[in-house]
């Protein structure tokens, strides 16, 4: 899994019917050293109700289909969790809501 920040959303009305009702969000990767955005934005399917600005965890490939919302759906990237804390080497490097 990797971390990313949700920064937006995408709308598509003409799409595979199995994707009906799924929220397609725009996220940008987070660099774990600095906890800053790094890299180019990508599209991922929301399965946990993630909101804009939140740091989330996402899974790719067939693992992105291992959720109730995305089983047997043409999805290759899904948000699988909203991050509360990140501890690295005993140090809390991220706390949701108390970002610098």
């Amino acid at each position: 899994m990797q971390l990313a920040r949700v920064i937006g959303s995408m709308v598509s009305t003409r799409k595979c019917d199995r994707l009906e009702g799924l929220k397609l969000l725009v996220a940008v990767p987070i660099d774990m050293d600095t906890f800053r955005e790094k890299g180019s934005p990508f599209i991922t399917v929301d399965t946990v109700g993630a909101g804009e600005g939140e740091i989330v965890m996402w899974a790719g490939g067939s693992s992105s289909r291992q959720t109730d919302l995305t089983t047997n759906k043409p999805v290759d990237s899904s948000i699988v969790g909203i991050v509360d804390f990140v501890d690295i080497e005993g140090k809390r490097v991220y706390s949701k809501g108390q970002e610098t």
């Binding site: 937006g8 709308v11 595979c16 199995r18 725009v26």
Partner: peptide, 24 residues
């Protein structure tokens, strides 16, 4: 993962036409 593409020898399929993208 769609009815029309489930047995196709393809590793990439188009599943939607984008209407709009909102960022920040």
């Amino acid at each position: 993962q769609s009815d029309t593409s489930k047995k196709v020898a393809s590793d990439y399929s188009i599943y939607g036409i984008i209407d709009s993208i909102d960022m920040r």
